[in-house]
Amino acid sequence: MMNRMDIDGYQAVIRYDPEIDLFRGEFVGLNGGADFYAADIARLKQEGARSLKVFLEMCAEDGVEPRKPYSGKFNVRVPPDLHADLAITAAAEGKSLNHWIADVLKQAVQG
């Protein structure tokens, strides 16, 4: 997926920062911040691995779980007419709205 980088099983979002003319990577889903910068992709991977190593070492020293826990629940606000259309579409596919939305979201992140 574009703008995403996997480093040792941890996900980072990559963006170009025109103000400093560098790519910036930021690990997501962590119990803290870890970012890294580089001018090219090869160096970005190296800097990401270095940043992640430092972050994980600090977590180990402090006894902190590196990954942020997720409950599997979140609220989404949509206009009432969209809510109705979603519910109808889910029912037409023989699924609950929750199951249908989960399937759509899964497809979105995988492909």
Rank of each mutant, 00 (worst) to 15 (best):
19 E>K: 13
98 N>G: 08
42 A>C: 09
61 E>D: 09
102 A>F: 00
83 H>R: 15
88 I>D: 10
74 F>G: 01
13 V>L: 14
72 G>L: 02
95 K>H: 08
44 L>E: 01
26 E>L: 05
22 L>H: 06
108 A>R: 08
45 K>H: 07
55 F>K: 10
76 V>P: 00
79 P>R: 06
106 K>L: 15
91 A>H: 09
71 S>V: 13
49 A>M: 10
73 K>E: 08
10 Y>R: 03
31 N>A: 03
82 L>C: 01
39 A>C: 07
62 D>I: 06
23 F>D: 00
49 A>K: 14
108 A>K: 10
46 Q>E: 10
53 K>H: 07
89 T>A: 15
22 L>T: 06
49 A>F: 11
59 C>A: 01
64 V>Q: 14
15 R>H: 07
90 A>E: 03
41 I>M: 10
59 C>L: 07
104 V>P: 01
31 N>E: 07
60 A>E: 10
108 A>V: 06
77 R>K: 08
66 P>G: 05
94 G>I: 03
50 R>I: 11
74 F>L: 12
14 I>Q: 00
92 A>W: 04
47 E>G: 03
21 D>F: 02
21 D>E: 14
95 K>A: 08
93 E>T: 09
94 G>S: 11
106 K>F: 09
105 L>W: 02
68 K>E: 01
74 F>V: 07
77 R>Y: 08
24 R>A: 11
30 L>P: 01
45 K>F: 05
95 K>R: 13
63 G>I: 00
36 F>Q: 03
45 K>R: 15
53 K>G: 04
69 P>S: 09
82 L>T: 01
64 V>P: 14
72 G>N: 03
59 C>V: 11
47 E>V: 04
42 A>G: 08
45 K>I: 05
22 L>P: 06
47 E>Q: 12
55 F>W: 08
58 M>N: 15
89 T>E: 15
53 K>M: 12
35 D>E: 12
22 L>R: 11
90 A>I: 02
111 G>E: 02
83 H>D: 13
48 G>R: 06
103 D>L: 13
10 Y>M: 04
24 R>H: 09
44 L>H: 00
66 P>F: 05
77 R>Q: 09
36 F>S: 00
71 S>N: 01
16 Y>E: 05
27 F>Q: 00
24 R>N: 03
91 A>K: 13
15 R>K: 01
80 P>S: 12
15 R>S: 09
96 S>W: 05
24 R>D: 00
25 G>N: 06
78 V>K: 03
28 V>S: 01
40 D>M: 06
88 I>P: 04
65 E>T: 04
88 I>M: 13
88 I>V: 14
10 Y>G: 06
84 A>H: 15
27 F>P: 02
13 V>H: 13
20 I>P: 11
77 R>D: 09
16 Y>D: 02
61 E>W: 04
83 H>M: 12
57 E>P: 15
35 D>G: 10
80 P>L: 09
87 A>Y: 08
26 E>S: 10
73 K>A: 11
13 V>A: 08
75 N>T: 15
21 D>Y: 01
108 A>M: 03
30 L>W: 01
22 L>W: 05
59 C>E: 08
10 Y>E: 02
54 V>P: 13
27 F>I: 05
91 A>S: 15
60 A>L: 02
26 E>I: 07
23 F>A: 03
28 V>L: 04
55 F>S: 00
49 A>D: 06
10 Y>S: 03
